[in-house]
Design a protein around this nucleic acid. Structure first.
Lengths: 173, 173
DNA sequence: GGCGGGTATTCCCTCGGTGAATACACTCAG
DNA sequence: CTGAGTGTATTCACCGAGGGAATACCCGCC
């Protein structure tokens, strides 16, 4: 859901074409995770199909022709509503949680899973805290976001570690 | 990736058929998020295609015939390696982070985004802390996991709120 | 005898995500 | 002046996650 909304947000600035959207997205949100072309154009096609954006002709720039899209009123509406509707956590269990439970289900060592995870999280924390003042504001906020969640998982690792015996008993029941 | 591995974990207990796997999965990991049939059988097909599980004949039980699968040596290997390989956070920015950045990009109120999110997170925290001692161990650990991440986001909301002006300046540059 | 309910699988579709191919315009080395 | 590269721009083909619904079989029961 975030990619279509991101494209709408960028289109809200004024009509453009897919290539420019991709570059702008990468600059603003692509830190570490650039958008692939396939996704850009297929998303634009869906936006158009759903009436959230519409093609407004073809420009020719440097290279192949540019298919220019504009956001529609419906698109603006959808975007604003997405923006202001707070999201609840997905409900899908995180991967770490899943690995611990499955380790117990399959009779493997959940302690090792927790210990291994703690190790790489602590390493990652060191890297992130060292880089805490590098980069631009977006980078730093993204870093803070990751640090906060790393801490959350590290706390949970301790809690889970203390209850592994109970968990094992229950899961293997 | 977690669904195929979960099925391997369950198959590691001994051969069974898709339907039983689905039920067992729902019991163990499906709290709030049950597996759909489509996913069970298509995942099994992929596991077989990739040599991680193999069909071992057809039983007849109550109802339609059961196609029984067993984990292979390769499957055991893959599962163990997945289990013991710690996962780093995806690198994909979280939805909250994305919403804040996009609000600024599109010239909307990021404060409102943060405030709205804080509101529902606090509500959710209350619900979760109230239910903190209900349910089984899995439920409680899942709850703790969610609480930890909710706290992380709430902390981040404060940090981000304090830097919105800088962020806006950078993103609109 | 046919109807509902539990068991069990299959089919179809959409979406997010990736990789590679294609096409055009420009520049610059040979 | 040609053809090899580089940057711009779009398209195509594919996969896996996930959801919805259809199908089929068996049972008990009215």
């Amino acid at each position: 859901m975030t990619v279509p909304m991101a494209l709408l947000a960028l289109l809200d600035d004024g009509p453009t074409h897919g290539f420019a959207l991709k570059r702008r997205y990468d600059r603003v949100l692509g830190h570490e995770r650039e958008l692939k072309y396939g996704q850009v154009y297929s998303t634009l096609a869906r936006l158009e199909r759903d009436g959230l954006a519409r093609g407004v002709g073809v420009e020719q720039g440097e290279g192949a022709d540019r298919r220019v899209y504009a956001i529609t009123d419906l698109g603006v509406q959808e975007f604003d509503s997405w923006l202001t509707t707070p999201a609840l956590p997905s409900g899908r269990p995180g991967e770490l949680f899943t690995r611990v439970v499955l380790a117990l289900v399959a009779g493997r060592s959940a302690d090792e899973v927790l210990a291994g995870q703690r190790r790489v999280y602590l390493d990652r924390m060191r890297v992130l805290t060292a880089a805490r003042h590098d980069g631009d504001v977006v980078d730093r906020l993204a870093g803070d976001h990751e640090i906060a969640h790393l801490k959350a998982d590290l706390d949970w690792i301790e809690i889970a570690g203390a209850r592994l015996a109970d968990l094992r008993a229950e899961v293997t029941a």
